[in-house]
Structures are given as C-alpha cells and as structure tokens.
C-alpha cells in the first residue's frame, strides 16, 4: 500500500530522505518517473539520496503502477514519489490503496515551455496542463493536501485551488 504519494520536483532529497521516511515509517521508496527509469546518472543521484536501510525502486510510471497493484505489496508501507502532477494523477487513477497525496513542491525546475505559470501557495508553480491535472486529482476520493515538512499543518489543495 502507498502510505503517501508525494509530488516533489526534487524527488528524493533532504526533506524526503531524512524527514518523511522517518515520519511515515516506510521501508520502501518508489520513484515513479520515466526519465529516472531510463537515466543512469539520475538513478545514481537517487541512490545516493536514499537513507541507509531503506529500499529504493526506480520505475517508469506505468511499471510503478504494476508494483503498487502487486498483491505482494499489500502489507508493505511504500512511499511513492513523482515529480509532476500528471504522473501522480495517473497513479491515483490506477491504484486503489493510497492513504494520501501530498502535493509538496512543483514547477521550480520545469522548462515552462507552456508559457505563464499559475502560482498556488508558495511552492507550487503550475503550467496550464499541471493545473488541469491537479483539479482532476482533487476530485478523487483520496485526501489531497500540501505538507512540505511534517511540522507544517496539512493544507487542503481543494481550498488552495479556489478561484484558480
């Protein structure tokens, strides 16, 4: 089961590796990202960022969905990461067992080829298509919130999206 699906354009980094894996008590981290799944340098940096004692799996989004739906993983608390909203939406639409979706950091490293971005809160800079994906995401049954670090309060994404 996915203890948390986190959208974070930095994938595994300090906030995630040190703080969240401890907070969520997740022995397994799954990076669901097509680029990472095919890029050895990115895989190297992700392995470097993985805390000692945690298992890391790097898969394309489609392959990751198969892992999340594998009956063998039912009892395993997994921390799932994507670096964009569209990938997270695809996972959420195809996986039932997700406790919560944390829209943490989005858009800082995006190429902005779609033009102007929509600022939602202080850490989300969304293109038109990412904003549309986020609006779809909050329609699902799974709780969708923002909590960059555990000491922050959870903020509802639905209320952050009002008037957007």
């Amino acid at each position: 089961m996915i203890a948390q699906l986190r959208i974070d354009d930095r994938l595994i980094h300090g906030q995630v590796a040190l703080v969240w894996t401890k907070e969520l008590d997740t022995p397994g981290i799954v990076v669901a990202n097509d680029n990472a799944a095919s890029n050895e340098m990115v895989q190297m940096t992700l392995k470097m960022a993985t805390p000692t004692g945690k298992k890391l799996l790097i898969r394309s989004v489609d392959e990751a969905i198969k892992v999340f739906n594998n009956p063998k993983g039912k009892g395993m608390r997994m921390f799932a990461l994507t670096n964009n909203v569209a990938d997270a939406l695809k996972i959420a639409q195809n996986v039932d067992d997700i406790d919560g979706i944390n829209v943490a950091n989005v858009g800082r490293f995006a190429d902005n080829s779609e033009g102007e971005t929509h600022q939602v809160g202080s850490t989300l800079m969304l293109s038109d298509s990412e904003l549309a994906a986020l609006k779809e995401l909050v329609k699902l049954d799974t709780p969708v919130f923002q909590q960059v670090v555990p000491s922050n309060q959870k903020a509802s994404i639905a209320s952050m999206l009002k008037n957007k």
Binding site: G28, K55, L56, L57, V67, N70, K72, M76
Partner: peptide, 11 residues
C-alpha cells in the same frame, strides 16, 4: 552502482 532491485526483491 547498477544494482537495481527487481520488483520481487523490493516487495
């Protein structure tokens, strides 16, 4: 380090 886990060993 090209030791990537298989789905089974991860799960």
């Amino acid at each position: 380090d090209d030791t990537n886990l298989s789905d089974d060993s991860f799960l």
